[in-house]
Design a protein around this nucleic acid. Structure first.
Lengths: 340, 340
DNA sequence: CTATAAATTTTTCGCGCGTAAAAATATTGA
DNA sequence: TCAATATTTTTACGCGCGAAAAATTTATAG
């Protein structure tokens, strides 16, 4: 790389011997220029290390190459992993993925949406918090700009990609009933539609099997699921207040907390003869393999969720094609480990 | 909010009755305009919901209000948490935090740095991967733009904020030796300076206490620490190949894996009489409270790291003040839980 | 009420690039 | 070789805003 630093496209045009508009065309779509020209440009890029100014690019373009992504918590490995997948795919397609977190706060989610507007994004991929007032705002966004919702359905006609909770929870309930005592359900706080759906799915599946459902309601709100599961365990386990000794948790993070509490209280978790408790989760959280014992759960298909979201979105952006069905419900997969 | 949507500052100037440059001044610093003017502007904002175009703003500003953040893995809760802290502080100070992940790949780290250039950032906060070729590039960045390095020291004279591994590891070694058998050290892959420093710190601390250090080298490379710890456990525990029954892990994620392996092999972890193994970690990873048993570790002060990084950076950006000492080493705090 | 400083407005320019249209040039195929 | 087509160059304009300088208004003091 030469010492001389290129300030703008004008200068780069000079040193590369190609006219500025052609260079502009190249950066918009390398395949739009003749091969010999492309090679000369790429040679010059390698030599001088020039990259167009991102702000100037987007300033005047009819449609930007920016994709906005909003998730409730980047800290949550579930979202982190999906974001990573989405990000990689966007970069490959020549888009810039701008990731915004709402940190569980509806206010911040709203301001993230405003931010997307001022970024003049080409499309958005959003996992909504679930606050109904924000949902309206998101729907308006979706009316203006190609938008895919994932993870948490908003109960409208928006484009959605997510796990079929009725299928996935049904699968787990079925397995637990077949292999032992029917489960009770440790509910998560009602932070979103998934919470409600999974509870309903549990109740429905139990009734279908001819068993009495038992839902243990969440004691407090918020997103600190491990803590909630842990506290529920400390509260319920020693007093033998669980309706049954098989617990299906609304998500893995709660299960992780519950298992920690069980361990602390000297209760053996697992499906063997000498165990006191079976615990199952939902999601196949990255940490689920490393609980003690390893967590039996239903895997959400991270890769498919990311893939579907991105390809659906690109279809809408580049070809203006709305998917045939707005809903894409992916199947969960039973992951049998030692905890249940 | 009125129906009429404002397209640009010109139009907003018209409807609000304030000249465009004054409005520009307001958005750059609300306190720079007269109070009565400010109130009129804010009233109009509430009415029309106008926000300046982000690309146009940064297009022509001498110094942008963008802070670039690069971390090895956003998926890692340690980085995720620090990023969250930094992000919040940036927003409060009127900056936009642009978070880029290198995903453990030096290539992507390099391209993230180039991205920061084209974003014309005012400053950068970077946790480097540790690749030496990229380190040079980061140093050049730091020469051009105010930059704070955190977590992983690059052994140069760059501005750095991170935990004092010699202090923190020393603390833990000291505790373990006082409370029982001296520990061996389960090393992490040499992905960065922390890996080397912690091992050295362990060796030095053991020697100071007059004990023979035992380092168990990492078997493979990469960032999948839980997996590495787990595999090490499966390999070493059944064969009784551990030099001692107290294991200090280079980080919590490895400890989490090791504890999972111990559980699977039926070995009780903890500091009681009936236990087979003591396990300690380093970092106070968000999950450390929920292992079975809960993990004894040394806490890195997330909040201080974020706070120091940001305030140091803002000092450099806004007042051009380099900190008196380029190195800021924060103390770790011993967190006693049940595992050791 | 006047002088002066401070705040604000007006005017004007330019950032780096996208984009459009017309002109010039290169490539292709017969 | 020559027209037909593809590509590049030339020329020119505009995006939405920051910034600097000059003109004007407003606030503060005397």
């Amino acid at each position: 790389m030469e010492e001389q630093k290129i300030k703008n496209m004008e200068e780069f045009s000079a040193v590369s011997g190609i006219s500025r508009p052609t260079i502009s065309k190249y950066f918009n779509d390398p395949s739009s220029v003749r091969r010999s020209t492309r090679e000369r440009i790429e040679e010059a890029i390698a030599r001088y290390g020039y990259r167009p100014n991102l702000f100037a690019i987007n300033q005047n373009r009819k449609f930007t190459k920016n994709i906005g992504i909003i998730v409730p918590h980047i800290v949550d490995p579930f979202y982190a992993e999906i974001v990573r997948q989405i990000e990689t795919r966007c970069i490959e397609a020549g888009y810039w993925a701008i990731v915004l977190g709402s940190h569980g706060d509806a206010e911040r989610e709203l301001s993230a949406i405003e931010m997307l507007y001022s970024l003049r994004i080409a499309g958005a991929i959003i996992a909504p918090l679930g606050d109904t007032s924000v949902s309206d705002r998101i729907r308006r966004l979706a009316a203006d700009i190609p938008t895919v919702i994932f993870d948490n359905h908003m109960n409208g006609d928006e484009i959605f990609v997510g796990t079929d909770n009725f299928q996935s929870v049904g699968l787990m309930v079925d397995y637990l009933c077949r292999s032992g005592e029917p489960p009770c359900f440790l509910d998560m706080p009602a932070v979103n539609t998934n919470a409600r759906e999974r509870r309903e799915a549990y109740v429905r599946a139990m009734e279908e099997q001819g068993f009495q459902p038992h839902v243990i309601p969440a004691e407090s709100a918020g997103w600190d699921f491990e803590e909630l599961g842990y506290n529920a365990g400390l509260r319920l386990l020693p007093a033998h207040q669980l309706p049954t000794n098989t617990v299906l948790c609304a998500n893995d993070r709660m299960a992780i907390g519950l298992i920690a509490a069980a361990f602390e209280k000297g209760l053996r978790v697992g499906r063997g003869a000498a165990t006191a408790l079976r615990v199952a989760g939902h999601d196949d959280h990255p940490m689920a393999r490393f609980t003690a014992p390893a967590l039996t759960t239903v895997a959400q298909d991270y890769v498919s969720i990311a893939e579907n979201s991105v390809s659906t979105l690109f279809g809408m952006i580049e070809n203006g094609v709305r998917p045939a069905s707005p809903l894409r419900r992916l199947e969960g997969k039973l992951i049998l480990r030692a905890s249940a």
